[in-house]
Simulated assay, not measured.
Amino acid sequence: MAQASSTLDQNQFSCPICLDLLKDPVAINCGHSYCMSCIKSCWDQEDHLGVYSCPQCRQTFIPRPVLNRNTILAEVVEKLKKTGLQAATPADHYAGPGDVECDFCTGRKHKAAKSCLVCLASYCETHLKPHYESPAFKKHKLTDATGRLQDKVCSQHDKPLEVYCRTDQQCICYLCTMDKHRSHDTVSAAAQRVEIQKQMGETQREFQQRIQMREKELQELREAVGSFTSSAQSAVEDSERIFTEMIRSIERRRSEVTKLIRDQEKAAVSQAEGHMERLKQEIDELKRRHSELEQLSHTEDHIHFLQRCQGLPVTPEAGFGPRISVSPRSDFGNLRKVVSELKDQLENVCRKKIAEIHHPVTKDTILPELVPRTRAEFLQWELLFLSPAASWSFTFT
């Protein structure tokens, strides 16, 4: 209870401008209290208008009120200071690197909660209260705190950007619709955002489907590599066993076949690993784009949404390679048959059978030959995979 009372005292005797305990407190005609230096500084900026207002309720005064120190209030504040009940602001309420600062805080700036497109200023929670409480600010346009308020205002008419010109594909103000963009196809920024976000929803679903498809292909490819490696290892072991039973004269041929199998295994696995790496990169990129669209779809700032969505991908297919199909499981069965026959034959037939071995080994692979079906698909492949030294040839259908 003592702590709650302390917080109440701090709020009652804090200056709404500097947010610290009142220094030389004064009460102006509307009843609100400020530090004398704070309200003087505020009214000094209104001298050229000749009309002075309360920063909280916006009540105006003519002429400039005479300020007198509120002795009783000053004594109460001094007692608060002696009891140690200083007004404290949590550290996370102060603006840090990258945060938008409140334009009305003096001294150490607080973090802005909203920006006003009419005032062209940003406000912390305390200085934002008049925009919520005073009828004078009822028509002001508040948006998420931003340090680039000029980007939300028409450079020609100095009015908020609230309209989207479909003809010129840019954000404009209402005066622009009667000027340079007269007779153009225009809608409100909110309406255009709804239309684009509807399209974006379809794109996000396509991204999700593509992610699931690629993840499935990646899993199939992993399983195929494991099966292929196991099959290759089994083929090596079988051939080693058969060749060991043969006479010394065919030892050299055994080494040739073993090397052939290993080379093909290495080439096939290397090819598959390359596609696996590409699939991982595509999945990461698809997830990144999906996340970017997800974050953008939740922003409340229509203008930021429209300006950012211009550079986003329309469909998830752009910049990605073709689908990958995995070949059925291979077990080097033909090789075993040929090697078994070779065991019963003499050296004079070994040279002929080695040529027969080469063909069944090289045709076993994890992935079929990938051939682009269209010119556009070929250009995508060339961009994604081909190095300057590559010399692949393709047939278009």
Rank of each mutant, 00 (worst) to 15 (best):
C154W: 01
F137V: 04
E78S: 02
P328T: 13
K363C: 15
S41Q: 11
D301A: 06
D344F: 06
K180G: 06
M36R: 13
Q197T: 03
F396M: 13
K23I: 15
E46S: 04
V77Q: 00
E75W: 03
Q264N: 15
S115E: 04
G107S: 08
E162V: 13
T167Y: 04
C57M: 12
I357V: 15
P313G: 10
T374V: 13
Q169M: 06
E206F: 02
K114I: 10
K352L: 09
D99E: 08
S6A: 06
I172D: 01
N348G: 03
C173T: 02
S330L: 04
M200Q: 15
G333V: 11
A112Q: 04
S330V: 09
K216I: 03
A91L: 09
G96K: 12
T395K: 09
A136Y: 03
C105T: 09
P63W: 11
V371I: 14
H127S: 00
H127Q: 00
C42E: 05
T146R: 02
F243T: 14
A376F: 12
K280M: 14
A190C: 05
R288V: 03
T374A: 09
T167V: 10
K287N: 12
A191Q: 11
Y34A: 01
Y174C: 00
K159R: 08
S183V: 14
H302E: 11
E240Q: 14
S327P: 05
V76D: 03
V326F: 05
A376P: 03
Q199Y: 13
L296H: 12
V326D: 07
Q204H: 06
L342N: 02
A145G: 08
E294Y: 00
D344N: 10
A232S: 15
L73E: 01
T299R: 01
H184G: 03
A268H: 00
A27D: 06
C124S: 04
V236Q: 09
D179M: 07
F305R: 01
L296I: 13
L22A: 06
C119N: 15
C154H: 00
Q86K: 11
A190W: 05
E46N: 00
R58M: 13
A88S: 14
Q233S: 12
P130D: 12
P160W: 07
K216R: 11
L19W: 03
K363D: 15
C35T: 01
I211C: 00
Y164F: 15
S115I: 04
H131N: 02
F396T: 05
N348P: 03
S234A: 14
I354C: 06
A88Q: 15
E377L: 13
K129H: 07
D9A: 08
